[in-house]
Design a protein around this nucleic acid. Structure first.
Lengths: 153, 153
DNA sequence: CCTCTATTGAGAACGAGTCTCAGTTGCATG
DNA sequence: CATGCAACTGAGACTCGTTCTCAATAGAGG
């Protein structure tokens, strides 16, 4: 499992410790596979009688973000409070297709978008760091249910 | 001022009223020109002895968003809680270049990105509603100050 | 085994945004 | 102009995701 290895190295490089709690939280996130929220993660851990606190979870998520292994996704164009977290690879792109009907999140990869970002920053003398694209659209299932762009959200 | 007209029409179409408070808040936002936060707006209004409450501001911002005149911008790839608001035209794209050093926000328009979003949704049978792109990068001024992608944020 | 930090848990604190509710205002109608 | 009624407002309580605090605990090197 190379993501775990990467996390360990990140901790080591910072003089931080690879503790039981960090291990358990990381494993739970990997087991989840899908984007998750903190309450869901807490519940999952409690079910398995793995004791940990909210504070530790948030601290670990912070570290995972700093190591580039985790990203946040905010699910609405206007309300940035309902966040999900999701593991990601080493590249720092955060592109998601979000269904405005059911909230389903799909990862998207499109070279064209990375290229556009590079062009935009270069043209203005900026130094590119990362980008985040969210596309809000209605998935086929929700369209079948009769939802339309107007009546959802 | 056609944006104001658009707002009035939106209110009218919903059977809502164009009140003094909504007018004052709208005018303040227009006067601001740049992206703003709610505290800044409150302060601006208080300075001019325009009395209004946080609740009314948020309610008005909500209406402006629904009318398509306003958008939110979240300033960090990881923390979606520090938001700015900004007037926009009628088109529903939310593309911003955000300096990770000083927080400066620049609007970006790139046809290629809209095209990519259209392609991505069409390929998957989704019905496109809107998109939001944030590019995180270091502006020339911050680069001159010696900031680098590694030590900022 | 000791020492020095990093880490942890529990709960308090924070803060942007929302809700509540009693009092006010806009507006259509008689 | 008076009336009625739904929409609106302000003040402050509330929500809820996230962060902070601080005393107790646990790794890792010597």
């Amino acid at each position: 499992m190379e993501a775990l290895e990467q996390f360990k190295q990140f901790l080591d490089g910072r003089g931080l410790k690879y503790t039981r709690e960090r291990e358990k939280i990381f494993q739970a996130i990997v087991a989840f596979e899908k984007p998750f929220d903190v309450d869901g993660l807490l519940f999952y851990l409690k079910q398995r009688e793995i004791k940990t606190s909210k504070a530790t979870i948030y601290r670990t998520l912070q570290l995972l973000q700093e190591s580039g292994l985790l990203r946040t996704i905010s699910l609405s164009p206007t309300d940035h409070r309902t966040n999900l977290y999701s593991l990601c690879g080493k590249y720092r792109a955060y592109d998601h297709l979000i269904c405005t009907g059911c909230g389903k999140v799909t990862d998207v990869e499109k070279k064209q978008i990375c290229d556009s970002c590079r062009t935009i920053t270069q043209d203005r003398g900026y130094q590119l760091e990362s980008h985040s694209l969210r596309i809000f659209a209605l998935c086929p299932e929700c369209q079948k249910k009769g939802l339309t762009v107007e009546n959802c959200r």
